[in-house]
Design a binder for these strands. Structure first.
Lengths: 101, 101
DNA sequence: AATTACTATATTGCAATACATAATAGTATG
DNA sequence: CATACTATTATGTATTGCAATATAGTAATT
């Protein structure tokens, strides 16, 4: 899969998984990679980024099947960002679509 | 406009403009930037890349309104590449779409 | 029981790629 | 001379890929 296509969209995919419920990193890795080829390293970098940007907050919770899980929670700022970026993405698709028609 | 969204798609947009006729760089810059925000520098880098990759050939032709124009011609290899990448792009959109729904 | 191996989970460093920005330069025309 | 047309290149930045590391449980093997 063309690596470049994912640039900028991957973080939206991640944020979008957090709309309804908090999830932990490993879980997100599995979820996303069901559709797109993504390695854990890439995912965790994205998680770090969206946390640094204030789009998510995190908290630890023990697991009964391994190390503690770090859960990610979408903030109001993250929700706003996601909404606006999704709109921009659709707008981009429309314009690019014209050039690719 | 989110800079990252364009990664990997811009060169397809350029190649796609060459399907029916040869075009020169400045012309392509104008064409593409009607839809997407792109500067000449970026466009010329892409043109250099797709030429190095053998997707286009070039030739000079004088203009009656300025310096000579460098025309870009899509090769058979470029046509193949474009077709495959467009298919991959659509496939990517479908998968990303699921994650963004 | 002790050792080993494997799964679940998180993190980090370095390399590669593509776009942005800005500067340069040459030709023709008003 | 100023401006529009045309092409090129250098430097910076952001995002992903790949690979390695680390830790805690669980299962398997000796």
């Amino acid at each position: 899969m063309n690596t470049q296509f994912k640039k900028g969209v991957l973080d939206l995919c991640v944020l979008n998984q957090l709309i309804r419920e908090d999830r932990y990193g490993y879980e997100l890795t599995e979820l996303i990679s069901r559709e797109l080829e993504v390695t854990a390293g890439t995912l965790y970098l994205i998680l770090k980024r969206i946390k640094d940007d204030g789009y998510v907050t995190t908290y630890l919770r023990e697991s009964d099947s391994g190390p503690a899980r770090k859960y990610y929670h979408l903030t109001e700022k993250g929700r706003d960002y996601l909404q606006k970026q999704k709109a921009e993405w659709l707008e981009f698709l429309e314009k690019a679509g014209k050039l690719l028609a």
